[in-house]
Design a protein around this nucleic acid. Structure first.
Length: 290
DNA sequence: CACTTGACCTGTCCGC
DNA sequence: TGCGGACAGGTCAAGT
């Protein structure tokens, strides 16, 4: 579930909490979660400091002073949670925190810093991973070579957005939106939300989408993702930020997970269907197949 | 080649 | 209450 806004929220938290800290130790429970953990860990991870935390699409990049990078994908249930040595978790609003004392049974990788603070990679379903590689190798990863442009970049225009879809003209607009090679960072939540905003049925073929509709979709996607970042992302089930706290965008969602409720625009009951192999939420009156 | 489907996992929820 | 099966959805490999 972590999509661009969720990963960006985690990035901002990590940038605040871990930059400058020196890694003292690392533990992992399964090779699947940290596939090449043994090879270069002693030389390029232990003893190095965190320089900066970047994001590309849904991928987190923790750059180290060793000129190596921790490349992290949260997939569906991954979490990156920082705890200082004297962590007080669950503080504030009673529902803020989804995770309690760490490590817990979902903890796959634990990074310990020299000051005693720790960074936990938790992942219930084990789809996510952490990899260590030289910074200069990151752009050579297949995914990085294929992934589309960042939709929230200031210089990303509606014209470029529309152009990107030409490569997938024969598929549905929802499948194309979810295709990371078209535009980076869109997942199920923001695909549904932006399609509702632009009044486009998810099963419409890309070739049938008009220029005007693409412009509307471009605006809706950017608006909804920016709002989601402002709200700290969407916590549907597992997602938490770098403090272990939930995001609140789901409270502002118009159709996602709102089947049976009235469309905020026209009052028609929102329906859940299947499109592009995913659970898909639409207003059957606002979003029609012509 | 373009596109769709299934696999990867675990926890939750629903119906019997 | 227990239990099987469907479902959750990001990405890649395999299939059409």
């Amino acid at each position: 579930m972590p999509e661009l806004p969720e990963v960006e929220t985690v990035r901002r938290g990590l940038q605040e909490f871990i930059v400058g800290r020196e890694i003292k130790a690392v533990e992992h429970d399964t090779p699947k979660s940290f596939p090449n953990a043994d090879a270069d860990v002693q030389r390029f991870l232990i003893g190095s400091k965190v320089k900066q935390v970047r994001r590309r699409a849904k991928v987190l990049l923790i750059d180290l002073s060793s000129e190596y990078t921790l490349v992290i994908h949260l997939k569906m249930t991954g979490q990156m949670v920082f705890r200082s040595s004297a962590a007080v978790f669950g503080a504030g609003h009673p529902n803020d925190s989804l995770v309690g004392e760490l490590p817990d049974k979902t903890t796959r990788v634990t990074f310990t810093f020299t000051d005693g603070s720790r960074l936990f990679f938790n992942d219930q379903r084990k789809f996510g991973w952490v990899k260590l590689m030289p910074i200069i190798e990151v752009p050579n990863i297949d995914f990085m070579k294929k992934v589309g442009p960042e939709p929230l970049e200031a210089d990303f225009t509606d014209r470029q957005f529309t152009e990107r879809f030409h490569r997938r003209s024969k598929t549905s607009i929802k499948a194309a939106l979810l295709d990371q090679t078209v535009v980076a960072g869109v997942g199920n939540i923001y695909a549904d939300e932006s399609l509702w905003g632009a009044k486009i049925h998810p099963k419409r073929l890309v070739a049938s989408i008009t220029e005007r509709e693409f412009k509307a979709l471009y605006k809706e996607l950017r608006d909804v993702m920016n709002l989601a970042i402002e709200k700290g992302g969407s916590t549907d089930r597992n997602y938490v930020n770098a403090e272990g706290k939930k995001g609140s965008y789901i409270d502002f969602a118009r159709v996602f997970r709102r089947e049976g409720q009235p469309c905020p625009r026209c009052g028609t009951t929102i329906v859940k269907m299947r499109a592009a192999g995913r659970g898909t939420h639409i207003c059957p009156k606002c979003q029609v197949i012509q």
